[in-house]
Amino acid sequence: ATVHVKGVTYHFDNPEQAEKFAKRMAKELNGEVHVDGNTWHVD
């Protein structure tokens, strides 16, 4: 799974980790999470 945060890409072997990371980053950055298959975007 892949997480894109403000133009930076993070790779996770575990999709659950990717989801938790994306949601945590969105919270910290006051952003929104969008999911597209195995790819998470934090804007």
Rank of each mutant, 00 (worst) to 15 (best):
M25T: 06
G31C: 08
V42R: 01
P15I: 12
K6I: 08
E32Y: 14
V35D: 03
E32C: 09
G31P: 01
E32A: 13
T2I: 12
K20E: 15
V42L: 04
G31W: 08
P15C: 06
V5L: 08
F21R: 00
A26K: 04
N38K: 06
H4A: 06
E28K: 12
K23S: 06
E19H: 05
E28S: 06
K27D: 11
F12R: 00
Y10W: 07
H41G: 03
E16Y: 10
D43G: 12
D36T: 13
E28M: 10
T39Y: 07
H11G: 04
D36P: 01
D13S: 12
K6F: 15
M25D: 01
N30Q: 09
H11P: 05
A22Y: 01
P15V: 12
D13Q: 11
Q17N: 10
L29E: 03
F12A: 00
A18Q: 00
D13C: 06
F21K: 01
E19W: 06
V42I: 09
F12H: 01
P15G: 08
V3W: 00
H34Q: 07
G37D: 05
N30D: 09
K27Y: 13
L29F: 07
K20D: 13
E16H: 10
E28C: 07
A22L: 02
G37M: 05
A1Q: 08
K23A: 09
V42N: 02
K27V: 11
N30W: 06
E28G: 04
A26C: 07
R24D: 14
N38C: 06
G31Y: 09
N30S: 08
Q17F: 07
N30E: 07
H41E: 06
N14C: 05
T2Y: 13
V5I: 11
N38V: 07
D13A: 12
A18V: 00
K27G: 07
T39D: 10
F12C: 03
V33A: 12
H41W: 15
Q17D: 15
Q17V: 11
N14P: 01
V3K: 00
W40E: 01
K27L: 13
K20Y: 09
N14I: 08
A1Y: 15
W40A: 02
F21Y: 06
Y10E: 01
K23Y: 14
N38W: 09
V8S: 07
G7D: 06
L29V: 06
A26G: 07
V5M: 06
D36L: 12
E16I: 11
E28A: 09
D43S: 15
M25P: 01
V3E: 00
T2N: 08
Q17W: 06
A18T: 00
H34G: 04
V8R: 12
H11E: 07
T39Q: 13
K6W: 10
N14D: 14
T9G: 04
V42G: 02
W40H: 03
W40C: 01
E19C: 05
E32P: 04
T2R: 10
V8Q: 11
H41Q: 07
M25A: 07
D36I: 15
M25V: 11
G37W: 03
H4Q: 11
T9D: 06
K27P: 01
Y10G: 00
V33S: 05
Y10D: 00
V3D: 00
K20I: 13
D13F: 07
K6N: 15
Q17M: 12
H41T: 15
V33T: 06
E16A: 12
M25E: 04
V42D: 02
V8H: 11
A22N: 00
V8A: 08
V8G: 05
A1E: 04
N30K: 11
G37E: 05
Y10P: 00
V3Q: 00
A22S: 03
F21S: 01
E32L: 14
H11D: 05
E28I: 11
V42A: 02
H34R: 15
G7Q: 05
V35P: 04
F12D: 00
G7H: 05
G7P: 03
K27W: 12
V3N: 00
H34K: 12
H11T: 08
Q17P: 03
R24F: 14
A1G: 10
D13R: 08
F21N: 01
F21E: 03
A18M: 01
N38D: 08
F12M: 02
E19P: 01
F12P: 00
P15D: 09
N30Y: 06
G37N: 07
M25S: 04
F21G: 00
P15N: 14
E28D: 07
K27I: 12
V3H: 00
H4I: 15
H4L: 13
V42Y: 02
V33H: 04
L29W: 05
P15Y: 12
